[in-house]
Amino acid sequence: MGYPNVDETLTMIKELVSIPSPSGNTDRVITYVEEFLSSLQVETKRNRKGGLIATLPGKNDTKHRMLTAHVDTLGAMVKEIKPSGRLKLDLIGGYKFNAIEGEYCEIESSNGKTFSGTILMHQTSVHVYKEAGKAERNQDNMEVRLDEKVHNPEDVRALGIEVGDFVSLDPRVQVLSSGFIKSRHLDDKASVGILLQLIQQVKEEGTTLPYTTHFLISNNEEIGYGGNSNITPETIEYLAVDMGAMGDGQQTDEYTVSICVKDSSGPYHYGLRKNLVELAERNDIAYKLDIYPYYGSDASAAIRSGHDIVHGLVGPGIDSSHAYERTHRDSIEETTKLLYHYLESELV
């Protein structure tokens, strides 16, 4: 078994981030993943929450592994139709309004129609509002300007738009010749792309993994409970593959795989962490150990829900998390290499 081609992984990530999938409205992207895995003749099933579980039978079927990456993203819902015909938002996921000021968006009505818009401050025009730069970026001041001829709530409702309709953010994805990929929603579609390419590699080369291995493509991670169920009793190790958070005081960067030792939920399993580090060092994989102070993962959600598992967290380093994100092909490649060797390794 060899490493997947990083260019093919980047192409898949670009396709994934281009499919709108805010938490609560992920059927379209789950179907995309499901069809990709079906083309590889991989056994899959959906759980009742709408996530997807793919299984590769291993040499040992009495002990299982599970890896997870989440395909749901940040987004919003229509909170209110304002007297002006503009839309008030309620955010989905943990981010701030300033991270989406000026962003293009798509509103999906419950009848399946989509409409474009732009997220703006109500007090945007500096020619009208003296305090345009100082006004707080919050739910009361920010709104969606629809690209439709609307003047009041009646006009908006005539289009089919209503409170509770999902709002997706334009990813603005670019893959650059310098090796960078920048886009919204690299958290966590970068990791989904990595796992799908690894599964394809296993199938194409006819490799049998040492343990039966499940891959959960979860769809509610951004709201806290995507990966806390459907874990088989035989599962011993549960590894979340999610972004590595960058910033002041962090070691994580855009060129290595980040191995998380602790986040807001507490330390990750020490034995599994040491095993991941050993795999990286033995195979010349560039890595960083890090603590993410305001972070939780599907693995920590699984622990909180009472599963008796060994849990860990790794992923590519992502700059400007929960905003307009960026990583480099090197980080994608190093993460892929570590996961490749992890899939072939012995349990802790």
Rank of each mutant, 00 (worst) to 15 (best):
G227T: 11
T68P: 02
Y270L: 10
L176K: 05
F97M: 13
I332G: 07
Y268T: 03
R326S: 09
M246I: 01
D263S: 06
M246G: 02
K130M: 06
A54K: 07
G296V: 00
K88D: 09
M246N: 00
G306H: 04
S38T: 15
K274E: 12
E333R: 15
L176C: 14
T252W: 06
V277I: 08
L343C: 11
N230G: 05
Y340R: 07
G24I: 05
H122E: 14
G266V: 03
S38V: 11
F215Y: 12
G179T: 04
V6G: 10
I30V: 11
D298Q: 03
V78F: 04
E205H: 12
G164C: 04
G317V: 04
K134D: 15
G271Q: 13
V17D: 03
G315D: 03
G50M: 04
L159W: 02
T9S: 10
I119T: 10
V175K: 01
E34G: 08
Y340F: 14
C260E: 15
V192S: 10
H64C: 14
E8F: 01
A69Q: 12
I332L: 14
T62C: 13
T252N: 00
Y129N: 10
V42K: 09
H185E: 06
L169T: 03
I291H: 09
A135C: 06
K203Y: 03
Y95I: 09
E344N: 12
I13N: 00
S218P: 06
E221C: 04
G296S: 05
L169C: 02
G112D: 13
D248I: 13
E334V: 08
A299W: 08
N283F: 07
V173F: 01
A323G: 13
N111Q: 14
S300M: 03
D248T: 14
A99H: 08
F97N: 08
E254V: 13
I194D: 13
T327N: 03
T124H: 03
L209Y: 08
E35I: 04
T207N: 14
A245S: 11
V310K: 01
K130Y: 08
T208I: 14
D253L: 01
E162Q: 03
P267W: 02
K182S: 12
M121C: 12
Y342F: 12
V257L: 06
D242G: 06
V71F: 05
I119G: 01
E278F: 09
L169W: 00
V6N: 11
K288F: 01
V348G: 03
T62S: 15
R145D: 03
E136D: 13
I199S: 09
L176I: 08
Y95K: 10
Y211D: 15
P316N: 09
V150K: 01
G249I: 04
L52S: 06
E35K: 12
V167M: 07
R46Y: 05
E136A: 15
L195G: 05
V156G: 04
T235V: 15
D248N: 11
I291Q: 12
L338M: 02
Y324G: 00
I303F: 12
G58N: 13
